[in-house]
Amino acid sequence: MKSKITLFLGLYLIWCFLNWMPDWQHLLVGVLVAGLVTIVTGDLFVSNIHVLHHLRRVWYFLIYYMPVFVWECIKANLDVAYRVLHPMLPIRPGIVKIKTNLKTDTALTFLANSITLTPGTMSVDIDRDKGVLYIHWIHVETTDCEKATKIVAAHFEKILAKIFEEDV
């Protein structure tokens, strides 16, 4: 139920942005449409997104996660541009596996997306039972599981565990 309310609020916000500037007719139709979509598709979505009701988690998301994410994105772009424009193509690709301690769907999705948009790495598959992610790495530095985990995912994992999983 809590996650349905969160879904409703998110959909309503998107509706308001799509019909900028909002007046009362748009807002009324928005309530109807967002309510209908919530009733129909509410059970399909991930279930623990309502942890974002705690303001402290939203705060962590905005203050810790977003700046790190944007900075890593910019570094990733410069890295890829360097590799592409270099005449010798300095790549050493390979698929390695790393371990993760995250359990919930939302946290794993965010972890996979973060890994894809950070320098040199892209997530290929997730094995949720073993807690293993398979990573395609454009310049493999180590094939050892522990070291690779430390290089690729460690700091994102800490931040995401704080946001999505730790009890308040």
Binding site: C73, N77, V80, V84, P93, L117, V124, I138
Partner: peptide, 21 residues
């Protein structure tokens, strides 16, 4: 990068990162 790199996964890396951002 989409034209130069040698296989699907590398192309996917370069193209997704650079074009999305």
């Amino acid at each position: 990068g989409l034209v130069r790199l040698p296989d699907v996964y590398n192309r996917l890396q370069a193209a997704t990162k650079c074009v999305t951002l």
